[in-house]
């Protein structure tokens, strides 16, 4: 079992919050001494998921946790919103699938950028997306 060393909750209500969320993930990724490429992957995934929570989920929160599992450490990011939910997760994960004006890359792409990825969603209630990258 992994233990949580540090935990912070940030709002994702405005496009400036997305910028702040990215900066927080970068700071923690640097502290955890992730490689530059891994830092970039984490920050990019955070940017996509925070923007989704804002654009599709009407805003929500990002919770970041520093995980320690024996000799391993990792960064966990949880994006939660009380928006419309995702009707079909399989479709939403497909590259090119979008219900908005985007390119439909954010969700499937961020899944590829992390090690663990899960989506919990209920139509009309909201969405929680959890992404972890280990180092």
């Amino acid at each position: 079992m992994s233990s949580v060393q540090k935990r912070e909750v940030l709002p994702v209500k405005t496009s400036n919050d997305v910028v702040i969320a990215r900066q927080k993930v970068r700071q923690l990724a640097v502290e955890l001494r992730f490689s530059l490429v891994d830092q970039t992957k984490l920050v990019t995934a955070a940017s996509e998921l925070a923007r989704n929570a804002l654009d599709h989920g009407k805003g929500g929160t990002m919770t970041v946790e520093v995980l320690v599992n024996g000799a391993r450490s990792g960064l966990k990011m949880v994006f939660e919103d009380q928006g419309p939910g995702i009707a079909n997760i399989e479709d939403a994960l497909k590259d090119g699938f979008t219900t908005g004006a985007g390119m439909g890359l954010g969700l499937g792409g961020s899944k590829r950028l992390v090690n663990d990825f899960s989506i919990e969603t209920e139509v009309g209630k909201g969405t929680r997306i959890t992404a972890v990258r280990w180092r």
């Binding site: 530059l36 490429v37 830092q39 970039t40 992957k41 990019t44 996509e48 590259d95 390119m103 890359l105 499937g108 792409g109 961020s110 590829r112 950028l113």
Partner: peptide
């Protein structure tokens, strides 16, 4: 474009 950015972009699928 920084190399780390380019690597990430490819994985993102863009």
């Amino acid at each position: 474009m920084q190399p780390a950015v380019a690597i990430t972009l490819v994985e993102l699928g863009m």
